[in-house]
Structures are given as C-alpha cells and as structure tokens.
C-alpha cells in the first residue's frame, strides 16, 4: 500500500490561514490502513484545526468526509455538495487523491494534509517500511525476493558494496543491507551462482525517468 504521514499541523494550518470554512476529505484506501488519512484521522485533524483557530480568535468551520478512495474520480463525486460552500479542501489522501480532488474542483483551493512517503507494508502495528521502488520492471526473481532498487541505499544491482558490515548498510545501523539479505537467501536456496552473473544496467525508461507513466488494459475499457 501507499504509506503516508500527516504533515505538521502548523504547516497545514498555514495553508488554509485565509479560509473560514474548509472540507477535510479523508480517504478510506491505503492511507486509512496506514493510519494517516482515514475517517478517524480526518476527524482528529478537523478538531485540532478548529481548536487551533478558535484559540487564535479566528474560528474555522471544518467539515469532514471520508471517500471510499480518492484515486478513482467516481468516489470524489459525492463530495460535490460539501465542496460548494467551502473556501478550501484539505485532502488527507496520498498525492494521487489530492490531484483528483483538485481536478474535479478547478475553482477550489485544494491542499495536501499528508506527505506521501513510499510503497510498503507494516512490520508491526504502527511501523511501516519501504519495500518497492516502483521501477516499472520487477527484478525480484533475480534477487531472491528482496528489492535492491529501493532497499539498497545505492540501488546497486551487483551488491553488496564495500559499505556493508555486520549485515547493516553504511548509511545507518538501523538499515539492513539488502544485499546481505539477498546473499543469505540465495545461499539458503543454493543459488549463490546467480550472484556471480553481472546484472546489466537497468532500463530506467520504464521508471519515472521515461516520463509520466500510464498503464492500459484495452479489454476492460468501457467506451
């Protein structure tokens, strides 16, 4: 899922400093699962902003809505009525949702409440880690199911580099060396010979370097 985290509340407040009424739009997709932008977080943020503004002597009217998800335009449509009389929409979706909301309401000030961080999963409740680099051409079959593109600090394809020690990355003792993990797994699988193949440079045109990407499935497009 997409992992996001809420921006400092003062930053969010500054974005809507000149607004009297705002809609806080949560998203029940990924950001609800990672506890950043679901209905609960949306209501907390609304409450906190109201308190903050009241203390400043400039009360804010803050209403909330939680879309099933904001990355499908059809789920934004139900917000139309709520959006009508607000000065701004604070989206608690990932960057995708914020943009769809902004597209739907061209004359509204739409701001993000979250920092969209990465694609990952949770290790334990409350801890999330990055697992996929969205490179556009998966190589996990060559690296024992461990992604060096995103989990190696240098995205090295022929690791581990000289900075790997005691299983940790040179960048931080809190970061596992992805290539140590790959080595251990390849060894356990009896496939260390795979590590001797020189992996050629990646085709980054399949990643964002090739320009904004689109994915199409002709057979399911509804005319």
């Amino acid at each position: 899922m997409i992992i996001a985290q809420q921006k400092p509340i003062k930053e969010i407040a500054a974005m809507i400093a000149d607004c009297k009424k705002v809609l806080l739009a949560g998203c029940q997709g990924c950001v609800a699962v990672c506890l950043a932008g679901g209905d609960k977080e949306t209501e907390i943020l609304a409450s906190a902003l109201r308190i903050m503004r009241k203390l400043e002597g400039n009360p804010l009217e803050a209403v909330t809505y939680a879309a099933t998800r904001q990355c499908d335009p059809e789920y934004i449509v139900p917000m139309d009525d709520l959006v009508k009389d607000v000065d701004a929409v604070i989206s608690l979706a990932c960057g995708v949702g914020v943009q769809y909301v902004a597209e739907r309401y061209p004359d509204k000030w739409v701001v993000p409440a979250l920092d969209t961080k990465f694609i990952g999963g949770s290790t334990v409740h409350g801890v999330w880690e990055e697992k996929c680099g969205l490179c556009g051409e998966c190589i996990l079959h060559r690296t024992g199911g461990i992604c060096p593109i995103i989990r190696c600090s240098k995205s090295i394809l022929n690791g581990p580099c000289g900075g790997s020690q005691y299983g940790k990355c040179e960048v931080s003792k809190d970061v596992d060396c992805a290539w140590q993990l790959i080595y251990d797994r390849m060894k356990a699988l009896g496939r260390l010979d795979k590590m001797m193949e020189i992996q050629m440079p990646k085709d980054w045109s399949k990643s964002r370097d090739g320009g904004p990407r689109r994915a199409v499935r002709e057979d399911v497009i509804i005319e």
Binding site: S155, L157, N158, I198, Q199, P201
Partner: peptide, 11 residues
C-alpha cells in the same frame, strides 16, 4: 546510482 561500479567496469 544509474549504473553501479560493476556495470561501470564492464561498460
């Protein structure tokens, strides 16, 4: 890190 040291040597 477009290419790594191994690839740089090879190329």
């Amino acid at each position: 890190y477009d290419v790594d040291s191994m690839q740089l040597i090879y190329l």
